[in-house]
Computed example of a mutant assay.
Amino acid sequence: MQTPANQPGIHVTLGELIDMRHKVHEVPLFSTPARRSPLIGLHHSRLRGRGVDFDQVRVYQAGDDVRTIDWRVTARTQEPHTKLFHEERERPIFIIAEQSQRLFFGSSLCFKSVLAAQAAALVAWAALGHNDRIGGLVFADNEHHEVKPRRSKQSLLQLLNLLARANQALQPEPQPGGVRDAFGLALRRAREVLRPGSLVVVLCDERALSDNAEQQLTLLARHTDLLLLPLSDPLDHALPAAGLLRFTQNDAQLELDSHNGDLRQRYREQAQTREQRWQRLAQKLGVPLLPLSTQFELVEQLQEQLSALRPRKAP
């Protein structure tokens, strides 16, 4: 079985990942003097010894730290104002992006592997525009490749090239001899190479959260900030009533009667369990969780996710 090379959404090209730079302005992943990102907590929750610089003064908003109120401006304007600070630039941002066989699937706009590559490219371009250092690790079933964090377009393009090559290497027939827990090994490698204070952006299959991976994420969160973006497809969450379904992989075969209501209910419950596990982990570690689905366009769902994280003004 051969995959149509020119069919959109199945594979991604380097040119498409480069073009993601044009969408950075649509998603406030990082704060600028003119725009405050809802993810600002990633830069200010734990400074880990890094310096901060005064940025600007603006009207106090619900959720702002009262310790940063500028009392002189408040007294002069008769309206509460708060000081904003930003950390030193050139923060290492490390993107862990999965391109394994289990992501080579999709029933909606694109395959999960394509969504992961696009999201990684968008984060990388946004970080470079924020003057941070960009690096990452692209892992598949049998191998992984690293790019050391650097503040250069060449480093970013190197990472995008690795993403595109790994994505285009995915085929319908899986390659033998895959590593059992490639995600856990990738996280362990990140712990070995990253310095404290780095921001780690994790893009992986929603089903990748094994016991070992959860332990590695917990250890990684002790010295770095995390942003979790698990990926899923609508068929990961609900099995359609489509009659007898036959699945084959190598010499193995599986048949499921999708008209069986109990089977579909258990399938939904397993998906809910996976979602809840990610939610519990994010809550325990105190890190943002932005689940992504192949059902929706990337920029639109990130905008919606970030909007939900933004503190609401008091009535």
Rank of each mutant, 00 (worst) to 15 (best):
Q154A: 13
S152L: 08
G136T: 14
S155T: 15
E173K: 01
L170I: 14
L137H: 09
R180M: 10
I134K: 00
L162R: 03
H145I: 11
V179M: 04
L170R: 02
S152K: 13
R150L: 14
Q154W: 00
Q168A: 12
P176R: 00
L157M: 13
P172R: 00
Q154S: 12
R165E: 14
L163V: 13
R150N: 05
R151Y: 09
P176M: 00
L160W: 08
E146M: 11
I134L: 15
Q175G: 05
A164S: 15
A166E: 14
V179W: 06
P174F: 00
K153S: 04
P174W: 01
G177S: 07
A169F: 05
L163P: 15
K153I: 12
R165H: 06
G136M: 08
P172D: 00
R150T: 09
N167H: 03
P149V: 06
A140R: 14
H145R: 08
H145A: 08
A169E: 10
L170F: 06
A164H: 10
P172Y: 00
S152Q: 13
S155G: 15
Q171L: 07
A169K: 10
P149A: 02
V179K: 05
K148P: 03
R151G: 04
R151N: 07
N167G: 12
L157W: 07
R165S: 10
L156Y: 08
A140Q: 14
G177R: 05
D141K: 01
P149G: 02
L160E: 03
F139V: 10
Q158D: 05
V147L: 06
L159V: 13
S155K: 04
Q171P: 04
P174V: 03
Q171W: 04
L159Q: 07
I134H: 01
P149Y: 01
L137R: 09
K148F: 10
L160V: 15
L160K: 08
E173S: 04
V179F: 05
Q154Y: 01
L170W: 05
H145Y: 08
A164I: 14
G178Q: 04
V138N: 02
A140I: 11
L162P: 13
S152I: 12
A166V: 08
G177E: 09
R151A: 06
A169Q: 14
H144M: 14
L163H: 04
R151T: 02
L162T: 10
N167E: 07
Q171F: 02
K153Y: 01
L162Q: 12
E143I: 06
L157H: 09
Q168E: 12
R180Y: 02
L170Y: 04
Q168G: 03
Q168M: 09
K153N: 01
G177T: 12
Q158R: 14
R180I: 15
L156K: 03
G177W: 09
L137E: 00
Q175N: 08
V147R: 01
